[in-house]
């Protein structure tokens, strides 16, 4: 992978040049928190943000979108508005890029989703390094570094941003800036390594994920699920803010006075009482306990079986969004202790 460096004082210039590749979106402050938003001016970008309320998922799988319009006798017309819009997401953290790579496996693997794929193709990603806070555990989830899924990734090494060039588009962005970027030397690589060490030391949370599928397998009857079920509000906040929760619901919005309409999809959550409700009236996960348990099993157990790793990236959003303080690290820790006692 090509590695270059950009003098920090040239970042503004880079940002203005790179806009020829798409509409610039970055984290901006909103009511004391951060959200990814279209920039009206570069100075609004807050590249030292902790985490955005919603992950970049919202750009690839919007909270609600129209899939197609239908009219009896005429068939259907796919709704493609906006799919070809070129956007640059500037300042995406490694965990969030990792999460988008996980979404790739779901929407661009066995089941191809043209809407997701069109957006993935047209939305460029410029990653940025970050400093973990008390809710970050991406390192435990092996998502603190990404080697693909971005066009450029910037690492703060003091006077420079060291830039990993991830794609040909990223390389085009570099070339378009003329000679803003400089080659790296041995001292720069040392500075990068030191930054990595410092970052690793900054983690305050650590959770062991080794053997997790086995442990989850053994703890299916744990009393903890009942306790979590009694606490969970089924409010869906954790699913909305999760960068890898991809469940969606599909509905037909019928026009008044006809059988024509549009088919839409919107974010769903396995915590909703209706998530596993089927046509016969049977609900496979009728209790909150069954639903919160399912959420953990899908993230930490089922996804491992299907895709080889948990779908959790350790971004800390669900923990900070949960009104009743259900903490994913605490849940895993508790399960592990139980297992350790039992296996002694």
């Amino acid at each position: 992978m090509k590695i270059l460096k950009l003098p920090k004082e040239k970042l503004d210039l880079f940002a203005s040049v790179v806009q020829q590749f798409g509409e610039l979106h970055a984290p901006v402050e909103q009511d004391g928190r951060y959200v990814f938003k279209r920039l009206t001016r570069w100075s609004d970008a807050r590249l030292e943000y902790d985490r955005t309320i919603l992950p970049p998922k919202k750009y690839f799988l919007p909270p609600k979108e129209t899939l197609f319009r239908y009219r009896p006798g005429e068939g259907f017309v796919p709704h493609t508005d906006g799919l070809d819009q070129r956007i640059i997401l500037f300042g995406v953290h490694a965990c969030d890029v990792y999460a988008i790579n996980i979404l790739d496996r779901v929407f661009a693997g066995k089941y191809q989703d043209p809407y997701f794929q069109a957006r993935r193709k047209n939305i460029a990603i410029i990653g940025i390094d970050c400093t973990p806070d008390k809710q970050c555990f991406c390192r435990s989830m092996r998502a603190d570094f990404v080697d693909h899924g971005f066009d450029l990734f910037f690492y703060d090494t003091g006077n420079y941003y060291q830039a990993l060039v991830g794609t040909a588009l990223g390389d085009d962005m570099v070339l378009a800036t003329g000679n803003l970027f400089e080659p790296v030397d041995a001292a720069d690589i040392e500075a990068y390594k030191q930054r990595s060490i410092d970052k690793r030391r900054a983690f305050q949370l650590d959770v062991e994920i080794r053997d997790l599928p086995e442990i989850f397998e053994m703890e299916y009857q744990s009393e903890m699920w009942e306790e979590l079920g009694a606490r969970c509000l089924s409010c869906g906040s954790c699913s909305m803010v999760c960068p890898t929760c991809y469940c969606y619901d599909v509905n037909d919005d019928v026009e008044l006075g006809s059988r024509a309409g549009k088919r839409t999809r919107s974010w769903d959550s396995c915590l909703f009482a209706s998530h596993a409700l089927v046509g016969s009236g049977e609900n496979f996960r009728g209790t909150r306990e069954a639903r919160i348990k399912f959420r953990f099993y899908h993230k930490q157990r089922g996804f491992v079986a299907e895709y080889g790793r948990p779908s959790c990236v350790g971004c800390g959003r669900c923990t900070s969004a949960c009104p009743v303080h259900i903490d994913v690290v605490e849940v895993i820790d508790r399960l592990r202790r139980v297992q350790d006692v039992a296996s002694r």
């Binding site: 959200v35 919603l54 906040s237 509905n251 008044l256 059988r259 009482a273």
Partner: peptide, 27 residues
């Protein structure tokens, strides 16, 4: 529209928080 087509309108079965997070409001 649903009733005219002989359908039962879809009931919303989730909490305000869901829409609030979708809109990216600070909690």
């Amino acid at each position: 529209a649903a009733l005219l087509n002989g359908d039962v309108p879809l009931a919303v079965e989730y909490a305000v928080c869901t829409e609030c997070r979708m809109r990216e409001n600070n909690c």
